[in-house]
Simulated scan of single mutants.
Amino acid sequence: MPEVMFAGPDGRLEGHYHHSEDPNAPLALVIHPHPLHGGTMNNRITYTMYRRFQMMGFSVLRYNSRGVGRSQGRYDGGIGEISDAAAALDWMQMINPNSSELWIAGYSFGAFVGMQLLMRRPEIRGWISVAPPADDYDFNFLAPCPCSGLMIAGGRDNMAPEPVIRKLVEKLNTQKNVTVDYRLFPEADHIFSQQAELIADALEDHVTTRQKNLFAPEPASIAAPALEHDAEPEHEAEAIG
């Protein structure tokens, strides 16, 4: 069931969902970049993270926030978009009541939305933030950050400057029981045009390491399913924000 529609706070939301054959499979929610800058669930980085979670045996959802694609409503400055993410999470948890764990992943503006959601949902066990816009949004709400995660930056990113992201990482790493796995791609700009698979590799390495150390003593018990025919979309390679 790759194409889904589910209820959001401002109308129906459109998504693509992969359901694992394992009823206890972990869940992942992937959040796209800024809708006013072309960000949709078909963004290349968003799609690549979705596919990697799928290959790892997760049940995983990517979706269009309000006003994007076939999703109803209109852009709400970030506040409504956080509510959309919560609705997407509610829908996925409703059909996966026996899931073993929950992860969120976001790119650019989606990273901001994901971290806001993290503070509202204590059941989230880990997070992936790619190019979080720490120069444009105040991330002081992460006080304290509920759990550890992975943060990725591009060394040539003018939209989410690496020094600002590094400062955020250092601040989070001073918090008790929180360790941020920081990965820098020196040649990458905000689009990560040559680094999509490297981001996916970093995601898999971080998640499997966390599962081995903290969550699942026997991660091999989660079998990766055969990939369904979810045709690769035309990516918004220039979507930013």
Rank of each mutant, 00 (worst) to 15 (best):
P2G: 11
P9S: 15
R12H: 12
G15V: 02
Y17L: 15
D22M: 06
A28Y: 00
L29K: 05
P33E: 07
H34N: 11
H34I: 00
H34T: 00
I45A: 00
F53H: 04
M55E: 13
M55K: 15
S59E: 06
V60Y: 05
Y63V: 01
N64S: 07
R66L: 06
G67D: 06
Q72N: 03
Y75G: 03
Y75C: 05
A85D: 03
D90F: 12
N96W: 02
S100L: 01
E101I: 05
W103Y: 12
A105F: 01
G114P: 11
G114W: 09
Q116F: 03
Q116I: 00
L117S: 00
R120N: 15
P122T: 01
R125G: 10
W127L: 09
P132L: 01
D135G: 13
F139V: 03
L142V: 01
C145Q: 10
P146D: 04
M159K: 15
E162L: 10
P163S: 05
V164E: 04
V164R: 11
K167M: 05
K167S: 08
V169G: 12
E170V: 07
T174W: 15
Q175W: 02
T179W: 04
V180D: 09
Y182H: 11
E187L: 12
A188C: 00
F192D: 06
S193Q: 14
E197K: 10
A202G: 03
D205T: 11
T208M: 12
R210M: 08
N213M: 12
A216L: 11
S221E: 13
I222M: 11
I222S: 04
A226S: 14
L227M: 14
L227H: 12
D230L: 14
D230N: 15
E232S: 11
P233W: 05
H235V: 07
H235R: 13
E238V: 09
